[in-house]
C-alpha cells in the first residue's frame, strides 16, 4: 500500500490548479505559433493577440481567461493507494483557497437564486478505479461558454455513419463562434447518455496529436475534422485558420435499442493540469 499524504496532495493539487489558470496548454500554444506562419498579415495580428495573451498570463499571473471555469476533476485511484483523509473535502478546500488567493473569478452559483457559492465550489469530481498504487489527478477548468455548447442526443440505433457525422457537424455549425474557436472537439458515442457525456468531456484532456483512438474512431475523427473545418467559422469566427484544432472520438458498446451521442467543446483557452501521486 502507498499512503497518500493529505498535505502533499493538497500542495500538488493547488500547484496544478494555479498552473492551469495561468499557463496555456503547450500543444495549443504551438498550434497558435504555427497558425501565424500560414495566414495573412492582418490575420497574424489577431493570432498574435492570443500568443501575447498567453505570455502576459504566464508572466503577470493573470488568468488566461476571465472565465476561470468550474473545476472538473478526474481522479484515478489505484487499488493499492491508501487515502485516509476526505479527498473531496481536500479538493474543495484547495479550490476555495486558490480562487481566493490568486484573484480568480468565482463562477459558481445556486441554480435558481443565482447566489454565488463564493468559493468556486463545489468542484465536479469523477472517479475511476484501477490497478496499482498511484493516485492520478486530472484537472480541467471549463468555462461557461464552452459548457453551454455541450450537446447530447439519443439517435436511433439504425442511424448510419453519415447520419452520425451530420449530427456532429450540424451541432458545431449551430454553436458557431460562441464558444471561442478554434475548438478541441470530442465526441462520445455509445454507453448511455451519461457515459457518452463523461467520455466526451474526459477526452478533452488529450493532446491535439495524442493517439489512443482505435481505427474506427480514428477514421470517424478524421472525417469529422475535415467536415467541421469546412464550416465557415474558423479562428474566433473570422473565417480563417481552423474551426477545430482536433476531433477526438470514443466509442463504447450500448444497448441494442439505443445510440447515445455526446459532443463536448474545449475552447482555445482550454486549461488543464495533472499530477500523479
Amino acid at each position: 500500500m502507498k499512503a497518500i499524504d493529505e498535505a502533499i496532495f493538497k500542495e500538488k493539487f493547488r500547484e496544478q490548479l494555479i498552473h492551469a489558470n495561468f499557463q496555456l496548454r503547450e500543444d495549443v500554444r504551438v498550434y497558435f505559433k504555427n497558425l501565424r506562419e500560414r495566414v495573412s498579415q492582418k490575420q497574424q495580428k489577431i493570432v498574435d493577440i492570443f500568443i501575447e495573451n498567453s505570455e502576459i498570463a504566464f508572466r503577470e499571473k493573470r488568468a488566461l481567461c476571465q472565465d476561470t471555469g468550474y473545476v472538473q476533476v478526474f481522479v484515478r485511484i489505484g487499488n493499492r493507494a491508501r487515502i485516509d483523509f476526505d479527498l473531496e473535502k481536500a479538493i474543495n478546500l484547495s479550490v476555495k483557497e486558490v480562487y481566493q488567493d490568486c484573484g480568480l473569478r468565482k463562477s459558481l452559483a445556486y441554480p435558481l437564486s443565482r447566489q454565488n457559492t463564493s468559493g468556486n465550489t463545489p468542484a465536479f469530481i469523477d472517479y475511476e478505479f484501477c490497478e496499482g498504487e498511484n493516485l492520478e489527478v486530472f484537472i480541467m477548468l471549463k468555462g461557461g461558454g464552452s459548457e453551454n455548447a455541450t450537446k447530447a442526443e439519443l439517435l436511433l440505433p439504425t442511424a448510419s455513419l453519415e447520419e452520425i457525422e451530420s449530427w456532429v457537424v450540424k451541432m458545431v455549425e449551430k454553436i458557431g463562434a460562441r464558444a471561442c474557436p478554434p475548438y478541441l472537439i470530442s465526441v462520445g458515442i455509445g454507453g448511455n447518455l451519461g457515459k457518452a457525456l463523461y467520455y466526451s468531456k474526459k477526452m478533452l484532456l488529450e493532446g491535439i496529436d495524442e493517439g489512443g483512438m482505435d481505427e474506427e474512431e480514428k477514421s470517424l475523427s478524421e472525417n469529422l475534422l475535415k467536415k467541421i473545418n469546412a464550416l465557415p467559422i474558423g479562428f474566433q469566427g473570422l473565417q480563417f485558420g481552423e474551426t477545430a484544432m482536433s476531433v477526438k472520438v470514443r466509442m463504447i458498446p450500448c444497448h441494442i435499442a439505443t445510440l447515445p451521442i455526446a459532443l463536448s467543446i474545449g475552447c482555445n483557452s482550454v486549461r488543464q493540469g495533472r499530477f500523479i501521486f
Binding site: 493577440i49 492570443f50 495573451n53 502576459i56 503577470e60 493573470r62 488566461l64 476571465q66 471561442c180 469566427g237
Partner: peptide
C-alpha cells in the same frame, strides 16, 4: 462588436 474570447489577460491591460 466582437472582441477576442480567450484573450482576457491581454484585454484587461
Amino acid at each position: 462588436f466582437t472582441t477576442f474570447g480567450g484573450a482576457g489577460a491581454y484585454l484587461a491591460k
